[in-house]
Design a protein around this nucleic acid. Sequence first.
DNA 1: CTGAAAGCGCTTACAG
DNA 2: CTGAAAGCGCTTACAG
Lengths: 348, 348
Amino acid sequence: MVTSVPTTPGTGPKRPTIRDVASVAGVSYATVSRVLNGREWVSPEALKAVQDAIARTGYRANPHARSLATGRSDSVAFLLTEPQHLLFEDPNFSVLLRGVAQALSDRELTLILMIAASNRERRRALAYLGGRHVDGVLLVSPHSGDPLLDQLVRAGIPIVACGRVLGHEQHISSVAADDRGGARAAVEHLIAAGRRRIATITGPQDTSGGVDRLQGYVEVLTAHGLTVDPSLVVHGDWSRESGSAAMRTLLHQAPDLDAVFAASDAMGAGSLPVLRAAGRVVPDDVRVVGFDDSGLAATLDPPLTTVRQPLDRISEEMVRLLLDVIAGRTPVSVTVPTTVVVRGSSPA
Amino acid sequence: MVTSVPTTPGTGPKRPTIRDVASVAGVSYATVSRVLNGREWVSPEALKAVQDAIARTGYRANPHARSLATGRSDSVAFLLTEPQHLLFEDPNFSVLLRGVAQALSDRELTLILMIAASNRERRRALAYLGGRHVDGVLLVSPHSGDPLLDQLVRAGIPIVACGRVLGHEQHISSVAADDRGGARAAVEHLIAAGRRRIATITGPQDTSGGVDRLQGYVEVLTAHGLTVDPSLVVHGDWSRESGSAAMRTLLHQAPDLDAVFAASDAMGAGSLPVLRAAGRVVPDDVRVVGFDDSGLAATLDPPLTTVRQPLDRISEEMVRLLLDVIAGRTPVSVTVPTTVVVRGSSPA
DNA sequence: CTGAAAGCGCTTACAG
DNA sequence: CTGAAAGCGCTTACAG
């Protein structure tokens, strides 16, 4: 004897609930819940009856009811605080986003995308995350001193950042490429090619990537007995446009430069047309090396020699770490290795 | 006399609930709920008392409880079914995503990003969306015949697509650029420049954009008394790589071509190096016109003349339409105008 | 204009 | 191994 239940799953206002499943299976709904959650202490017969009933009724758990009861949301926010234009011109973000989406999907977690560029969006992001819509936050390219970070930390929300969060190393777990090592390898590559007037276009100095890549540059020059000429160091903001502007400044204040280490591929891309317009041939007159290798570098003319960061590893580690933090483990920093990828802008 | 409540919002396991607010305000919790939802029939005094109590307690509504009670999730999925590589090389997707994120944020709706590229992801997407986690789905670049579409339609999930869904025009609302008109304008531009052997690299013929842009091309040639030479028509899949492959084919089967209309900027971008390698100068020997103008076109060498589709309008309309569909209104198709943007690859 | 009560659909100790 | 019961934190008619 079987209770009749709605047969068209997903259609109409009446979806089967755990009670419908229980009555079809002839067990209590507590037992259904146990089966649903893969808990112990369910007899084989009950298991089978419930599984059949689930299939017959087309039952699907109501996620909101579950979240209300458990206090978990099984979702994670991907919080992007960079100005929006970077999302488009720098494949880094897309690749990271794709990797994270995959890693979350593998764990049956939902990815909630939040872009917090405008003040309005930042306010909303804080309210949303503070309201515990999500179990944790993946933070992309955080800038130290950003008030939003303090607020999130103070609200006790589990966070993992891509790149160390300067000033919050103790509170926020992070995953980063070996920025210093990668920068060192890049500059060593230029030195090995005989270049001595090596300029650098840095990233923002309130990000660990910006700071560490500059430090790698400084270390190698120093190690080779070269002085670090301030006129060879210009700051950018990761963007292509800032790379162009920086290149113009460099050509002006250090016209004898023979190589450029750009702390991002986008900035390297921005430098190329400026060099060409100035009549400098890449790589003959000026070698250019970038950083990232997320997809842009290979499409440039000439293709850009760069430092590859393993974004797939980084996104996977970020998700793994976030689950640790949510589980209550203490913050840690993970560093993943980089490799130099040699292309036309600075051949072997 | 005021009940003591936890004072550190977001910290610790105990967050204030609607009951805490009610007791602080000295009203029933039904009244608090009314205030929260901006409903009528709340006295000014009660309103003020509740607002104060909310501020004092640091109360934030539990979204899951609300969703359970209302049946709404106040979230929308952005479902990407294209192979992943397009997400990175074609700024179209990023720009659309950004616009949608903005439009949803303005309405206090949450954006859930789902990438359904692999079979595993597609299964999970269906289960997730069928489980009514979200109120509706924004579908990007749907291909007709995709079984996932049928399943979503059959599950009765509110959907709005970017581009008409061939075969589902009656069931799925959509927003599209004026693909046919844009293509016509592009080809007219080439004709006006005196070109007569105009090739086209089409988009996939199971997408409305692919079909309509080809039709615009055909219409203009026909209108000018030109025969549509099959050797001038090659199909691509929107990607840069497919543009390169198509260009190679075209140069082989129609070496006398003097212009190319690529149905996407990415495919146009793919054609440029192939033309250069073949010794054809753009635009002198071969003019090239793309479609999209989402950011890639302007960075190419030479910068690509293209048909601009207003992605900001499109994303805004998609969200507006989806809310209509969720509210029960019948599906409609919206078309937004395009404009030709003239650049170096086919100057005025 | 306001409150008491039922209900949304689950999970989780707690007894058996 | 299983069931009855309480509870998660809201919203929404329904009476007043």
